[in-house]
Design a protein around this nucleic acid. Structure first.
Lengths: 243, 243
DNA sequence: CGGAGCGTTGAAAGCCCTCAACGTTTGTGG
DNA sequence: CCACAAACGTTGAGGGCTTTCAACGCTCCG
C-alpha cells in the first residue's frame, strides 16, 4: 500500500529493516479523507488514535482571546499529525485541515505493541516527535528574534526544504495552500503586513508566493534574510546541503 | 539516593512501579556540578549522555546574527535537559546554566536497555520530551500573539506552576534567577521593556520580581492578563486547578 | 454573472525599540 | 569592614516597525 512511504523520508536516522517497514504499514487501521478547512480535533480531546498525513496540508493552532489564532505547526505528507497524543492520550491544541487531506489512523494499542516488541522502531517514532519539537524551537526563534521580512523568509526556507524532502518541491517550486492570513498566523504578523513583506521579496527577485504556490528563486539569499540554518531538520546529506 | 525524585513530579501519567523507580535511579552514571552562567553544550555537538537537572536553573537558547539570543526553554529541577538528544544523538541549540546546577548524566546505552526491556518506562521518558514540545508550543503562542504585558504574565504563570509542582514555590513565592535581560530573551522583548512591564505588574499589585525572586500576588489576574491555561502542563489534579 | 473571500494599497496610530543617563546592587580585594 | 568596579535595574525621549482602519481590485466558484 505504501501509505508510510513518506514517513521520515529524507531524514537522518531513519534506516528501517524490512520487518519494521511492514510493521509500520500494519499500525494503520484505516485511511480517511478530510475536506479542506475542517477541524479535525480540539484542545482537550482524548485520543485513541494518532494520525499520519498521507496527502494534503494540516495545521495545528491555538486560539487567543481576541479571536485571532496562532499556528504552532503545520504538517505536510509523511508527517505524523498528533503522535505526541500517544504518550499523553490527550491533545493541548486544535488541529484543522488546510486542503483536502488523506490521513491514516493509527490505533494506540498497535503502538503499544510496537513499544513492547520493536524498540528500534519505537525509537524512530519517538525521533519523529522530537523533530516536531525541533521545529517548534525554530519557530520560537523565528517569531521572537526576526523582523517581518526575516520571519517570512525563514518560513519559506523551511517549507521549501520540507517539501523537497518528500519529493514535492522542484527547483524551488512547491504548493503552498496558505492564505496571507494563515501565513500571518504562522509568523505572528497581520495579513496586511504579510502582503507588504511578500511584495518586497517579490520585487527583490528572491521569492514569489501566489495562487497557492511558492517559487523560491534565490534560496541562498532567502536563507540569509531569514538567518536560516537547516540543521534542525535533520536532513540526509543531499543537494539541500549546498544551499 | 533519590536523585530522580522530582522527575515528572506532579504530572499526570507518571505512575511508576518500584522496579521502574529503581531502574530510573540506575540509568544515572554520575552527578556533576556546573558553575553559574556556564555553557554546557553547543549546537551541533554529538551526545552520548543525556542530562537530568537535579538542582539549579538551566536555559536552552539560539543565537541570532546581531548578537542577541532567543531562549527556547529553561529547565528547573526534575527536568531532563536534553533527553531529545537520545533519539537524535545530536543537539540543535545551545545549553547553558543560569545558576550553579547539579546535573545527573545518563548514558545513552542505558536508555537503550530501558527501551528494550521496559516499554512502559520508555513511554514515560518519551512523555517527558513531549511535555517539552507542549511548552514550546505555548511559547510560540505567547510570543506570537500576546503583547509585552501578556507575555511576561504568561511566563510568570508557567514558572509559578512548574516550580510549585516540584515543591519549590510556596504562596506564589519562588526563586527566579533570571535577569531582566534573560526574561527579555525568553519573551522576545528588550530588557528595557521588560523593566517597564514588570513595573506595571508591580504597580497593579499582580506580581513582583526582584533580586532573583518572584512573588505572584494575584494568580487569577495574572492568568487573565497572560491568557494562561495550565492544560499544557499536564498537572495532576491538585491545588493548581483552583487558580 | 454575481457574490464572497482573498489580495493590495494608503494613511495614521500605537507599541516597542534604541539610545542615553543615572541609580542600585553585588561581589571582590584591599 | 570599606572601597571600588562591574553588572544590573530604572527612567526619559525620540524614532521605527508593525498594526489598525478603510477602500478597492481581483479571483474563483456556485
Amino acid at each position: 500500500m505504501d501509505r508510510m512511504t513518506d514517513f521520515l523520508r529524507g531524514r537522518r536516522r531513519s534506516e528501517l529493516t524490512v520487518e519494521e517497514k511492514a510493521a509500520l504499514e500494519n499500525v494503520i487501521s484505516e485511511v480517511v479523507v478530510v475536506p479542506p478547512r475542517h477541524v479535525i480535533a480540539r484542545r482537550g480531546d482524548r485520543l485513541h488514535n494518532s494520525t499520519l498525513l498521507i496527502d494534503g496540508f494540516i495545521c495545528r493552532y491555538m486560539d487567543a482571546r481576541d479571536g485571532y489564532r496562532q499556528l504552532v505547526s503545520y504538517q505536510i505528507p509523511g508527517d505524523f499529525v498528533d503522535l505526541h497524543g500517544y504518550p499523553t492520550r490527550h491533545i493541548d491544541h486544535d488541529i484543522a485541515s488546510l486542503t483536502e487531506a488523506r490521513i491514516a489512523l493509527v490505533p494506540h494499542e498497535r503502538l503499544d505493541a510496537v513499544m513492547a516488541t520493536m524498540p528500534h522502531l519505537a525509537k524512530l517514532l519517538w525521533f519523529s516527535t522530537i523533530l516536531d519539537a525541533a521545529l517548534h524551537r525554530e519557530w520560537i526563534f523565528r517569531i521572537g528574534r526576526l523582523d517581518a521580512l526575516g520571519r517570512v523568509a525563514h518560513f519559506l526556507c523551511e517549507t521549501n526544504l520540507r517539501m523537497a524532502c518528500v519529493g514535492r518541491a522542484v527547483d524551488g517550486r512547491f504548493a503552498l495552500p496558505l492564505t496571507q492570513q494563515d501565513l500571518g498566523e504562522a509568523c505572528g504578523l497581520t495579513s496586511v503586513h504579510v502582503n507588504r513583506t511578500l511584495r518586497r521579496l517579490r520585487e527583490e527577485g528572491v521569492a514569489q508566493v501566489a495562487r497557492g504556490y511558492a517559487h523560491v528563486q534565490d534560496f541562498a539569499r532567502l536563507a540569509r534574510i531569514g538567518e536560516f540554518d537547516p540543521d534542525y531538520l535533520y536532513l540526509e546529506d543531499g543537494p539541500w546541503h549546498k544551499v
